[in-house]
Amino acid sequence: MHYQKYRLIVPFLLPAILLYGVFVVWPYAQAIYVSMTSWRGVSPSRPFVGLDNYRRLAEDSRFVEALSRNGQLLIVLPLVTIAISLVFAALFTQGGQAIPGAGFYRIVFFFPQVIPAVIVGILWSYVYTPNIGLLNGVLRNVGLGGLQRSWLTDPATVLWAVVAVAIWSSVGFYMVIFLAAMQSIPSSFYEAAVLDGATRWSSFRDITFPLIWETVRTSIIYLSIAALDFFILIIVVSGGSTTMGAQRAEVAALYLYNQAFDKNRWGYASAIGVVLLLLTLVLSVGIMRLTRRETYEY
């Protein structure tokens, strides 16, 4: 039996471990070595330079600036996305009943999540485009023409224009997650609360929110990791990785991409990757600790 068992375990696990080891684990591990070389261009030589790339990164104002944009995203993206999703999830039921149209809204809100990010990005680039764009058109039509601007090149707006797209496309996803979590709360809790004179807001604050906290917390971590990545939308919405708009919204991951695939500075780019990898880890563990609260079993 044991013999037979291992004759199954080994061949069944091997393909997965091999593929994962070669194409996922190994590249991450290699990134650490490459980040300590000054490898660039097409040259096969990879001179070892120790921590030089990291020292240069610390003094690279462009990198620091990019990272500070990630810092702003880290605050805004989770906060706004979760707030809107929570409000919508809470609104979905009224007086103990699912509101009319709940099923329809749910299908629609979730939809942008399943659409290729590239389509979402291109579509919004035409929403923001100055002359034929939808946004400026709407502003003109409602008499707010004075607010029109070139959203994707104006340094004050470009990053936030892209953040709005990210929020627009992910609110439905988080709303559905929160709804699913809310549905596992026994309705007797709410019935008891009503008897005690609870309002809609107080039962949300005192029952719903604490009971779905674990889910909210997971969502904070997801969105924080997304805030550290966040460059596909920037390059697609602004029309290319080296456009003026993309540079004015440059986040660390975009800087990495351009250093690597535009400038061929592989060693330096890998150092950026390793820093981001560490930040991702620190951030996830940090948020887990900071958001730890008493959990309720029910």
């Binding site: 994962y20 190994w26 590249p27 290699q30 990134a31 490459v34 690597a260 592989w266 990898l277």
Partner: peptide, 19 residues
């Protein structure tokens, strides 16, 4: 395997390309 869920693909992009 599950740990792989945490890391964005772009971090592995450069070495993956050469691999």
């Amino acid at each position: 395997f599950v740990a792989g869920l945490m890391f964005p693909v772009f971090l592995a992009l450069v070495p993956l390309y050469f691999l």
